[in-house]
């Protein structure tokens, strides 16, 4: 659906050129929810704006729905943009228009007849759960409601892809969850491909199928969300997945073990059984389990006893149970 090839972007500033994106290569498949995660200033927002050419890339190719975006005339570009919805962190609703007329806006732009546009906008506002707020102005809506209007607006022209730029960053955790549920529904029922930019692991965790980790303008890791969660390879991914890394460093004095549970074993009392059977005491430094794609996954970081024999027994026990584990450096 979207292919980015060797995409580079530079900004001219008073202190010379700054490379914001360096050789980005990504493939986003039709119908999936793809996440791009990175810390602030990693270039995520610039990247998503390059896809609909709100930012002109310095070099590289953007292929959307087998069209080369760079080859489009400015008229064609406007047409193509109508098939890409975009949702923003700060909602960006027209302040002087009601919710209904905000959703009508993209349809007006596409010269859809007024009555038809109105009927469609009403349906979309129903879809996002705001049928009682048709005539409310943005100033009368809460953050979550505004974002729902923005999503309805982005869907009005029946886009093939929805570009979401930090859409939950201005919302509280509960609202974030409900907005993400809405996106998941939209993805399932309308089959819209969704690209989500975020700095919050929870967002990726909750709805994405695949994720790209981006750091200082480079893609440092891509893969299935569960893969990246279970075995983060890049430092950025580790930093984002294990935000408590600093505390672990303070607490560990000796050898350390990361245990990774797959779908079945997370519900067995593995650690208790292990300590009983090996007669070795371990210290749980960090534990986190989550539900990904309906199955439970989790991991734990254990401080091992200062005794090689016990450690061997622990390893043997885990091997026996078929549990993935690995010894960690102390300075994770």
């Amino acid at each position: 659906m979207i292919v980015l090839r060797n995409l580079c972007k530079t900004f001219d500033t008073s202190e010379g050129k700054i490379e914001v994106l360096k050789n980005i290569n990504l493939k986003i498949k039709k119908g999936e929810i793809f996440g791009i995660i990175g810390l602030s200033g990693a270039g995520k927002s610039t990247l998503v704006r390059c896809i609909n050419l709100l930012e002109k890339p310095a070099s590289g190719e953007i292929i959307f729905d087998s069209m080369h975006m760079g080859d489009l005339s400015s008229k064609e570009l406007l047409k193509v943009r109508q098939s890409m919805g975009m949702v923003f962190q700060s909602f960006n609703l027209l302040q002087q228009r009601t919710a209904l007329r905000n959703v009508c806006y993209p349809l007006e732009i596409a010269w859809v007849p007024k009555d038809e546009a109105r009927a469609k906008a009403i349906k979309l506002l129903e879809l996002v759960g705001l049928s009682d707020k048709l005539n409310a102005y943005p100033s009368q809506l809460s953050g979550g409601q505004k974002q729902r209007v923005a999503i309805a607006r982005a869907l009005a022209t029946e886009p093939k892809v929805l570009l979401c730029d930090e859409i939950t960053s201005a919302l509280d955790p509960n609202t974030t969850r409900s907005i993400l549920e809405l996106l998941q529904n939209i993805n399932r029922t309308l089959g819209v491909t969704i690209l989500i930019i975020t700095h919050e692991m929870e967002v990726i965790d909750q709805i994405c199928n695949r994720v790209a980790v981006i750091h200082e303008g480079k893609v440092v890791e891509t893969g299935e969300v569960r893969e990246v969660f279970l075995r983060p390879r890049s430092d950025t991914a580790k930093q984002l997945i294990l935000p408590k890394g600093k505390e672990i460093r303070n607490m560990t004095g000796k050898r350390c073990l990361r245990i990774i549970f797959d779908g079945n074993s997370a519900f067995e009392p593995i650690i208790s059984n292990m300590t009983l059977e090996c007669r070795a005491v371990v210290n749980i430094l960090y534990a986190n389990t989550k539900s990904i794609d309906g199955k439970a996954y989790g991991e734990m970081l254990l401080q091992l006893p200062d005794d090689d024999v016990s450690i061997k027994r622990i390893f043997a026990y885990l091997d026996d149970k078929g549990i993935f584990y690995k010894e960690e450096e102390l300075n994770v």
Partner: peptide
């Protein structure tokens, strides 16, 4: 941001002027 949103929806310059900027 509102102007950027209008651009992302494929508005022409003229449409941005009379449907976004002025209203």
């Amino acid at each position: 941001g509102v102007i950027e949103a209008a651009q992302s929806m494929g508005s022409s310059t003229f449409q941005i002027v009379y449907k976004v900027l002025i209203p």
